[in-house]
Amino acid sequence: MQRVVSRLDALVLFVTIVAIPVALWGAFLHAPTEQTMGAVQRIFYFHVPSAIMAYVAVVVLLGSSIVYLSRRDLAWDDLSKAATEVCLLFCTLVLITGPIWAKPAWGTWWTWEARLTSTLVLEILLIAALMVRRYAGNRDLGARLAAIIGITIAADVYVVHKAVDWWRGMHPEVFKAGNRGSLDERMTSVLFICMGAMFLLCITLIRLRYRTARIETRTEALRLERLD
């Protein structure tokens, strides 16, 4: 009998549970208040890591989709399903935290700028991928179609970003070369702590969702076996 949560998973989960309060402490207490934007800037310690984790999940989605199509092992489809859902979660976080910050900082909730637009497109396409998966009558068909959409999503988000960037650009460049010195040292360290905590959260969620998807797949296989 295989364990539902392996030792490694339990360890990662434990570290994540410790890391999240540390990140909260860093973002709300340790980091200094930003001079021009004030307290609202603190949301950036969650916004930026969430955005990067959404990209991490997209990379997992792309990889697992390609491997699934070539090997046809449903385990890879379970991974790609997990990556899609976790990516949607982080994408939603980005789309919620972004406007909260943008209203006081830019004076507007939303602007049709490259990163905002590509994030919104990513969100819509992820929802569409989940819909296709759900509407497909059988598991294999849903897995194949979702894998194709997964591959196009990864390519598309990059192209959308480039295109809107040409059209107009306005997003603050945090890590632009030469801009590095402008960020307070404590702010940088807190950002990296939050990045680490979010990364742990991201892989924990993908791992756990992958595990439950594996169990769902096996249960479904057993059910079909019984029916035959």
């Binding site: 919104l120 497109v121 819909m131 509407y135 179609l145 194709i148």
Partner: peptide
């Protein structure tokens, strides 16, 4: 893809229109 899952225009526009934003621009 959409025809395989038996959904019509709504799902196709949800997939195609956001993905083709660069072409529209």
């Amino acid at each position: 893809i959409v025809s395989r899952v038996g959904r019509g225009e709504a799902l196709l526009s949800t997939l195609l229109l956001p993905a083709s934003t660069p072409l529209l621009l």
